[in-house]
Amino acid sequence: MITEIAKSLVTIGLIFLLVGGLFWLSASTLRSFPIGRLPGDILIQKENFTVYFPLTTGLLLSLVLSAVLWLVQWLTDR
């Protein structure tokens, strides 16, 4: 059981390393990608405060992360 947890943590760590490296290498191209400014993200600005709730961005990132984790599980179970 401990070895399974260790393998999972290493796999998740490698995924984070890969995604972080991709963000770092393609920072200039990602600036034009509207993540955080998608339709459905809630932004309320008043005189003294600002409230930002990235609803659509959160759903999209959750969907992508779920697909990646499903793919990793599928590949490791084979």
Rank of each mutant, 00 (worst) to 15 (best):
T50P: 00
L14P: 00
L55P: 00
L63E: 02
S66Y: 09
V64M: 11
S28A: 11
L25A: 10
V68H: 04
L30R: 00
L59D: 06
V51R: 02
T29I: 13
L55S: 06
V72E: 08
L30I: 13
R31Q: 14
L71N: 08
Q45T: 09
W74V: 03
F53S: 05
I12Y: 10
L60V: 15
R78V: 07
G13Y: 01
V64Y: 06
L69F: 14
G21L: 12
V68E: 08
G40Q: 09
L59C: 10
L17N: 08
L71I: 08
L18M: 14
P34T: 10
T11S: 15
R31L: 11
A27Y: 04
W70I: 10
N48Q: 14
T11Q: 11
L69R: 00
I12N: 07
W74T: 07
R31D: 13
L69S: 05
L30Q: 02
S28R: 09
R78K: 14
T57N: 06
E4A: 13
I35T: 14
F53P: 00
L17S: 14
D77M: 03
L17T: 13
A67R: 08
G20D: 07
L14N: 12
N48M: 07
L59T: 09
L18W: 10
L60K: 01
L22N: 03
W70K: 11
I5V: 12
Q73G: 09
L14G: 12
G36L: 03
L9E: 06
F53M: 12
F53R: 03
R31G: 08
L30E: 02
N48G: 15
P54K: 09
L59W: 13
G13E: 04
Y52T: 09
L71D: 01
K7V: 03
I15R: 01
T76W: 03
V72G: 01
S28M: 02
I35A: 15
F23M: 09
L61H: 05
I12L: 15
I42Q: 10
L38V: 05
S32N: 12
S32V: 13
V68N: 00
E4F: 06
L75V: 12
Q45L: 03
V72Y: 06
F23K: 03
S26D: 04
K7E: 08
D41S: 05
K46F: 02
L71C: 08
V68P: 00
V10H: 02
V19Y: 04
I5W: 01
L30N: 02
S62K: 05
E4K: 07
K7F: 04
G13S: 14
L63H: 02
Q73W: 11
L38M: 15
D41F: 05
L65A: 15
R31A: 08
I5C: 01
L30K: 01
L71Y: 13
L22T: 07
L18C: 13
V19T: 12
K46E: 03
G36H: 03
L43T: 14
L22R: 01
L9A: 11
L25P: 00
V19M: 10
S26V: 01
T11N: 12
W74A: 11
F16V: 15
I15D: 05
R37P: 00
L18Y: 12
L18V: 15
S28Q: 09
A27D: 04
T57A: 11
V72F: 11
G20L: 05
W74H: 10
G40I: 06
L30G: 02
